[in-house]
């Protein structure tokens, strides 16, 4: 920290930055903030759990997707490749709308859906948001997992086979852990990307941080202040994600060594 601050220009820049922040606090209109702060906290919480849940679910899906492409027979590898290509080749916004409004337009044609026990969940918006974000993360991370599975040295697998290790044990003990460790450094960046994708679900009536800021904008007609606050909130969440993953990365080698 001290080394970071030693150069004279950094001190000047920091002072300039602080002055800018002070000017923003002083000159811009923040009178709406107390009234909307509780809503903002709920929105931030929604952003956090959406990011966390869809990252975990997406990663769980990405493992078979990557493995099928790296080592599976063609009838598994081919659909997995097609899935990853489609997800990575189309805008997430379009996927979200397809899943929410497209599936929604089917409900009137199949009345039994509305009679089922699942209907109270299906009529809400968040399951579609979770589904769309999970599939998206799985598509991108599946591609990364494919590379990771492929990069595990063949000799390790051959050695395990020669020892007579059953296939499932081999996957669990040798193949998967090594692939996961390869992927770990990319996860932090991918998770930040996933967090950055969450505001899109506001377009299907899910109330998260971005939706709250839009609400402020629409209620008060104040444009920039809510957007600036949003930028700061997302920067902070991104910083927390990076720090958490750095912590994990430090832990992993000591545990497996």
């Amino acid at each position: 920290m001290i080394a970071f601050l030693r150069p004279r220009h950094r001190q000047v820049l920091l002072v300039a930055g602080a002055a800018l922040v002070a000017w923003c606090i002083h000159a811009l209109d923040w009178s709406w903030l107390p009234a909307y702060w509780p809503l903002f906290l709920r929105g931030i919480w929604a952003t956090v759990w959406l990011t966390a849940l869809t990252t975990v679910l997406g990663l769980v899906l990405a493992i078979p997707l990557g493995f099928a492409q790296a080592a599976g027979p063609w009838f598994l590898a081919w659909p997995a490749l097609a899935f990853c290509t489609i997800i990575r080749g189309t805008p997430l916004l379009l996927q979200i709308w397809l899943i929410y409004y497209g599936l929604g337009s089917l409900f009137p044609q199949f009345p039994w859906i509305r009679q089922s026990d699942l209907w109270p969940i299906l009529r809400q918006a968040w399951p579609y948001a979770v589904l769309a974000l999970t599939l998206s993360y799985a598509g991108y991370e599946g591609e990364v997992m494919r590379g990771a599975f492929k990069s595990v040295p063949r000799g390790q697998l051959e050695a395990a086979r020669a020892m007579g290790m059953p296939r499932l044990t081999l996957f669990r003990r040798i193949w998967l852990p090594q692939a996961l460790r390869k992927v770990l450094p990319t996860l932090s960046g991918e998770t930040v990307l996933q967090m950055k994708a969450t505001p899109l679900v506001a377009t299907i009536t899910v109330v998260e941080t971005y939706a709250v800021a839009s609400r402020v904008r629409q209620d008060t007609f104040i444009v920039y202040e809510p957007l600036l606050l949003l930028a700061v909130v997302y920067l902070a969440i991104a910083a927390v994600i990076v720090l958490v993953f750095r912590h994990f990365e430090r832990m992993v080698p000591t545990r497996t060594a």
């Binding site: 929604g104 409900f107 009137p108 509305r114 809400q124």
Partner: peptide, 12 residues
């Protein structure tokens, strides 16, 4: 239009 669409879908 989207609100109407969700009314048709039965979500609201």
């Amino acid at each position: 239009d989207e609100a109407n669409q969700d009314l048709v879908a039965g979500r609201i």
